[in-house]
Amino acid sequence: MTLPALCTENLSVHLGGGAVLESLNLEIPTGCFVGLFGANGAGKTTLFRVVLGLLPPSAGRIRLLGLPPRQGRIRVGYVPQQAPAALEGTLSGRAFVAAAWRGQRWGVALGRAAAATAIDEALERVGATAFAERALERLSGGQRHRFLLAQALVNRPRLLLLDEPLASLDPAAQVDFIELVRGLCRQEGLTVVLSAHDINPLTAAMDRVLFMAAGRACLGRVDEVLRDDKLSSLYGSPMHVVRNSGRIFVFPAHGFMPERDTHHHHPSGLK
């Protein structure tokens, strides 16, 4: 059994007096494609940030590729939820990707053969070679999106953390993107954690589903997690899972209600 790509023990994060993550025990095996789901405020982005060492945990332990976050993160490719402004600028996609190649080192990076190889390879893997020299502002949203992934891949990571990469894509582009990520996972043994709102485009592609609600989480196979009893105990209120013509729908058993605040008393406006 190889080392898990990501492992947390009793991981808790408290922000502004409230618990954003509560005693998470996760173990994500190497080479696994994990879909991460949950409502806004469920702690998905916080989980990414704490795992990358950008936010200190209040309690618990994290092992990222067997190392503490600040050592392991150098082998992680991260695509944040909000695309940077430069993705719509006048630079070429290739320049955008090149900026990340060993971008944490000091000095100037000029004309290194190793850099050119790594950049070409990353562009090739996401199928963006053909339009890599064009200005980003002249490309379609789906084409630009590939450079975000290429940038995350250029340092040859072992783990990809993708925060809602499907949000700005139309359904066809979503399917393409998922196929692309799944290919990386299958052919190269990359571990992927991808957060999203709609579970359906991902059901066939992912190996595991990680569901989050109110700072707690449930990890397992799609069939194991997407069940009335599992989700009801995660949410702390009755939940229904309905399967209809190959699609899955999750909703509260008593209908949609205002955001629950019975368990954690957050003052309004607090994230």
Partner: peptide, 23 residues
């Protein structure tokens, strides 16, 4: 400027991704 050019460029184009690599 040359001494910090590389991480500055990364942080300029992709601040969050740069931060996640320790920039």
């Amino acid at each position: 400027l040359a001494a910090i050019a590389r991480p500055l460029l990364f942080a300029t184009l992709s601040p969050e991704a740069a931060q996640a690599r320790g920039v």
